[in-house]
Simulated scan of single mutants.
Amino acid sequence: MAETVIIASEILWRDIRGEAQRAAAADPIFGKAVAGAILAHDDFTSALADLIGRRLGGTAAERERFTTFSRDAFRGQPNLVEAAGRDLRAIVLRDPAVAGLLPPLLHFKGYVALQAWRVSHWLWRHDQHDAALLLQNEASNVLQVSIHPAASLGSSVYLDHATGIVIGANVVVGDEATILQNVSIGRHGGLPMRSPRIGRGVFIGSGATILGDIDVGDFAKIGAGTVVTADVPAGCTAIGNPARLTNCPEPASAA
């Protein structure tokens, strides 16, 4: 398994470096930025840790701190790097406006915010709660994406546009989910204070709100501006406020 992860990371890094070399040759001015961000590094792990540090750190000391946090997490749990690679390839597969790996890696703040969360989650699970919350706070301030370190997200996740996204503690988001801007997912008032569980391949439209101890089934769709406070069965589409179900693969009760 570890060997497979290493091979996948090496293939991804080869593809990224190839794009970076072509971009640098085509535009010498942009090439300087590419050289520092990509070509100066030996592997994807090093480049990604440096990218998180650059994007979150306002000072040299802060950049070094966040880079070190990231390196420690990636070394401590190598499959975080594999998940980061899957997240990157997911953007290319799902966004028709993206033609390669380099643009989302360098310029998509949702991608950086997601990888910063992966680091903060690792810190949280290793009882470094202050460091984890510091990383969350900086990602929220700089990137306008706030994902609590105690949340749980799968791989191949795409935060599209990634402004105003809030994902609370203990929320679960499955593999291959797509989340657009201004989405809030978290606990609802009252007891028990449980958080939503989002299944695999779920699409959540802009401005949607998902609250409470509920399940959103695999491959469900949540429409823009929808407010969901009850279960959404797999494959259904939820629209409106309050949410109602449509396009279900089989009869389902109203959300």
Score class of each variant (00 low, 15 high):
Ile52Phe: 13
Gly217Lys: 00
Asn182Lys: 04
Trp117His: 14
Cys236Ile: 02
Asp175Ala: 01
Gly100Asp: 07
Ser206Arg: 06
Arg65Ala: 13
Ile38Cys: 01
His161Thr: 14
Leu143Ala: 10
Ala49Cys: 04
Ile167Phe: 01
Ala20Pro: 00
Ala162Asp: 07
Gly58Ile: 05
Ala60Asn: 13
Leu56Arg: 05
Ala97Leu: 08
Gly57Pro: 12
His41Phe: 04
Asp160Leu: 12
Ala61Leu: 09
Leu153Asn: 09
Arg14Pro: 04
Thr59Val: 09
Ser70His: 14
Ala25Arg: 14
Asp43Glu: 10
Glu138Lys: 14
Gln181Thr: 03
Ala90Glu: 03
Ala37Cys: 06
Ala220Leu: 02
Arg94Glu: 05
Ser140Arg: 13
Ile91His: 04
Asp87Lys: 09
Ser46Cys: 03
Phe44Ser: 03
Ala2Asn: 15
Gln144Arg: 15
Pro242Gly: 07
His148Trp: 09
Phe108Lys: 08
Gln128Met: 13
Lys32Val: 15
Gly199His: 01
Thr4Tyr: 15
Glu10Phe: 04
Leu102Ile: 01
Asp130Thr: 15
Ala151Pro: 11
Arg89Phe: 08
Ala238Pro: 03
Arg89Met: 08
Leu191Phe: 04
Leu51Cys: 12
Ala230Cys: 12
Ala113Pro: 06
Gly212Ile: 01
Gly58Glu: 07
Leu12Met: 07
Glu62Ala: 15
Ala116Asn: 09
Phe69Asp: 14
Ile204Glu: 02
Thr209Leu: 04
Val183Cys: 01
Arg17Trp: 09
Ala177Asp: 03
His161Met: 12
Val166Asn: 03
Ala24His: 04
Thr59Tyr: 13
Thr229Leu: 14
Ala252Cys: 13
Leu114Asp: 10
Val202Trp: 00
Trp122Arg: 06
Ala224Pro: 02
Leu133Lys: 05
Gln128Leu: 13
Ala33Gly: 14
Ser155Lys: 14
Leu114Cys: 07
Val157Phe: 11
Ala208Glu: 04
Asp231Gln: 07
Gly164Gln: 01
